[in-house]
């Protein structure tokens, strides 16, 4: 315990924010930045792919399904290696490890989030589309005004779960030496040499606290959404 406190005193800041503000931001802060940007960037893409999966146009549906299956079939590490190789080919210049990891995370997350979006849409009553189309709204208007607002609201807990999985997945950035939390801890361990137990307890505990709290938050949100759907029914019964 003493050792842990000593390590936190000497390296806590490094683990929290890396070299910042003198150098690049790193550590836990970078982990959260990676996860958040992964979620924000993959969200619009996943809505497109998720809607594409159930498109009435079979070519679009098949293409979206193929994307989802192939990405889900590959380990995140392979996607990182592919991104390392392909992104420079596309934009014509070398890119940082950070960019590589973000691209890989976004592609990976898009596939999973797209399935969340698709499931949320399919869970809505069929009558919603029929009512909207019967009023003369187009397919796109129906998606935008009727289906997605409901589906995405219902999907909030699943989306938050995806964020938790993203937080954990960012640790894989370690492999290409991006200075997020896991890599930072690895470096601290390499400097100290004799305190692996303490360092990895700190590392594991940090992830645990974050993910565990987020999990609790998801449960809370789930209950909120559940009651927001139950209340009207109760009101109707009372009426």
């Amino acid at each position: 315990m003493q050792d842990i406190i000593a390590i936190l005193r000497d390296y806590g800041l490094l683990l929290a924010i890396g070299q910042f503000p003198e150098g690049p931001i790193g550590g836990l802060a970078l982990t959260l930045i990676l996860a958040l940007s992964g979620l924000l960037l993959s969200f619009p893409l996943s809505v497109l792919i998720g809607v594409g999966r159930i498109s009435p146009n079979p070519a679009v549906a098949r293409l979206a399904a193929a994307f989802v299956s192939v990405v889900r079939a590959l380990p995140l590490l392979m996607l990182i290696f592919w991104a390392y190789f392909i992104v420079p080919l596309i934009i014509g210049q070398t890119v940082s490890g950070l960019t590589t990891v973000i691209v890989a995370l976004v592609v990976y997350e898009t596939a999973y989030l797209a399935e969340v979006v698709r499931a949320a849409i399919l869970a809505l009553p069929k009558g919603q589309v029929e009512a909207s189309r019967s009023l003369g709204l187009s397919y796109v208007q129906t998606m935008k005004d009727i289906i997605l607002p409901q589906a995405l609201f219902n999907a909030i807990p699943s989306i938050l779960n995806q964020f938790i999985s993203l937080v954990k997945n960012t640790s894989v950035a370690y492999i290409i030496s991006v200075d997020e939390l896991t890599y930072a801890a690895y470096q601290v361990n390499a400097q100290l040499l004799t305190k692996p137990v303490e360092v990895y307890v700190i590392l594991a505990a940090t992830y645990f606290i974050i993910c565990f709290s987020l999990n609790r938050l998801v449960k809370l949100v789930e209950r909120r959404i559940h009651t927001s759907r139950q209340a009207p029914i109760a009101a109707e019964a009372a009426a």
């Binding site: 896991t182 692996p196 990895y200 590392l203 993910c211």
Partner: peptide, 21 residues
């Protein structure tokens, strides 16, 4: 809860770097 809230990679590190001690 331990296994669900910690990245797989970190779990591997815990076993490889910390457990031998």
């Amino acid at each position: 809860e331990y296994h669900r809230n910690i990245p797989m990679l970190v779990q591997i590190f815990v076993w490889y770097f910390a457990m031998p001690q």
